[in-house]
């Protein structure tokens, strides 16, 4: 067993784990934060995406022991006392989630994407979330939500959140 100490959403946590414990299980089982999900066994779906020291990461492909001493943000840590994170607002207002299972992972991935590229094109957004599978939304509104969050985070005029029909 190894002792792991890490900060999750600003709070320090410690646990004794065996080296094979996956980070996603540490977060979900040991620390009972179940907003991070598991959707596959081949590191393909991105449902488990979190931020480790600001980098988006598939927490099913990282050992808990590797995360010792890191700072982690999960979906539970996106909102602040002031309110929802713009990406959360963007997802809600633009109907970018149906069943919600992929949502945490896509949002956290989008947070890093916007951090590095505050003004991404549609193409950059699509490639930027290509490690996240969503079976429900068809991605159109996820793209729209990220564009909305991009505008909001830069203090730009907010795009309409009404659905557009031909």
């Amino acid at each position: 067993m190894k002792t792991v100490t890490l900060k999750i959403n600003g709070t320090e946590h410690t646990a004794e784990v065996s080296p094979r414990t996956l980070l996603v299980h540490l977060i979900r089982e040991n620390f009972s934060m179940t907003g991070t999900h598991i959707g596959c066994d081949t590191s393909s779906c991105g449902a488990c995406t979190i931020l480790i020291d600001g980098k988006s990461a598939k927490s099913c492909t990282i050992l808990a022991v590797q995360a010792d001493g890191t700072e982690i943000i999960t979906v539970e840590g996106l909102a602040t006392a002031e309110g929802l994170h713009p990406i959360q607002e963007g997802f809600h207002l633009n109907h970018a989630l149906h069943c919600g299972f992929c949502t945490a992972g896509v949002m956290l991935r989008a947070v890093e994407l916007l951090e590095k590229n505050p003004n991404p094109t549609e193409e950059e957004i699509r490639w930027g979330i290509s490690g996240n599978l969503c079976r429900c939304t068809g991605y159109n509104n996820i793209v729209k939500a990220i564009q909305w969050a991009s505008a909001k985070m830069q203090g730009k005029e907010l795009p309409s959140t009404e659905p557009v029909f031909v």
Partner: peptide
Amino acid sequence: KRKEDARFIQGKGNYVD
């Protein structure tokens, strides 16, 4: 806008696992 979104975007959904 959807009423159910609030819990999902904050990681408070309750799935079977």
